[in-house]
Design a protein around this nucleic acid. Structure first.
Lengths: 126, 126
DNA sequence: TGTTGACTTCAACAAATGTTGAACTTCTAG
DNA sequence: CTAGAAGTTCAACATTTGTTGAAGTCAACA
C-alpha cells in the first residue's frame, strides 16, 4: 500500500513540507498518481528515519544524498546495516574531532595567556 | 595597547566582519575612539578564540553569549579555565548524545524492518 | 598637512533547512 | 456525485552566521 506525503510524514515523524523538501533534494523519490500526487513506498519510512538520524549525526542534506545514492535500488536489510555502520563511523569521527578540539582547549594551555609584554615603541593607539 | 578590529581579527584568526558580528551580538565589547572606531583589549583575542572553539563544539552564538555573560568582567585565568571545562563538559554531552543516536541506529535493530503485513481492508490507494 | 590604508554604518546577498500561505486540484467516503 | 480533507506548485518568509560593497570618516606616517 503506497503512502501519501501525509502518511509518510506521520509515519516517520517529520512535517509534510520536509518530505517534499527531501524529495526535491533527491533524498526521497516518489511515483505519481494520474492526478500528480506523490506515492511513496513503505520502505521510505525507513529511509526518512535514516535521513533524520544522519542529520542528527551532523550530515548535511547534500552529504546524506551522497550516501543514500550509493545504496542499491530496493536496499536489503544488510544494505541498511552497512549504511548504519557508516553513520556510526562518521559519528565516531565527529566525536574524535570534538575530542581533539577539547585537547586544544585543555591541553594547549596557552589559549589565554596574555600579560603585559615589555613596553614597545610603536605609535600609541588612542 | 588597544586593538583595532583588524588587529583583533588577525590575532584571533577571523575576518573583521566576524569581529563586528560578534560585537553586534554581544559576544565582544569594545570601547570607541573619539572618531567612533572600535578598540578592543588584548584579552579579547582570547575571548574570540574561545568563541571559535565554542562554535566548533556546536554552540550557537546565542548560547555562547550566555556562557560568556556569566564570566566576571576582566576574567582571571581560572575563569577561563572554568569556561574551558564547561565547554569540555558540553562537548562530552554532545558526544554522549551522538553515541545514544548510534545506539538507536545499531541497537534498536527495528529501524528498518518492513515486510508485507496481512492484507488489509481499507480503500485501495492507487 | 596630506595621503592612504583602515575604519564606520547600512543594506543586500548567501547557503542551508525548512515553514507558511495562496490558489488550485485530486481523492475518497458517504 | 459531491463535499471536504488532503494533495499540488510556487513564492515568500524565517533563522543562523556571516560576507560584500558603497559611501563616507579617521588615524598614523612622512
Amino acid at each position: 500500500m503506497p503512502l501519501t506525503v501525509g502518511d509518510l510524514a506521520r509515519a516517520s515523524g517529520v512535517a509534510p513540507s520536509a518530505v517534499r523538501f527531501y524529495e526535491a533534494h533527491g533524498l526521497l523519490s516518489a511515483e505519481r498518481t494520474s492526478g500528480n500526487q506523490r506515492r511513496f513506498h513503505d520502505a521510505d519510512v525507513c529511509r526518512t528515519k535514516v535521513i533524520r538520524v544522519a542529520q542528527r549525526v551532523g550530515l548535511s542534506v547534500a552529504e546524506i544524498k551522497q550516501v543514500l545514492d550509493e545504496l542499491p535500488p530496493d536496499p536489503a536489510p544488510e544494505d541498511w546495516q552497512r549504511l548504519a555502520e557508516s553513520l556510526v563511523a562518521e559519528a565516531h569521527r565527529r566525536i574524535q574531532h570534538l575530542q581533539q578540539v577539547l585537547g586544544e582547549i585543555t591541553g594547549g594551555g596557552k589559549l589565554c595567556e596574555l600579560k603585559e609584554p615589555a613596553t614597545s615603541v610603536a605609535g600609541s593607539r588612542s
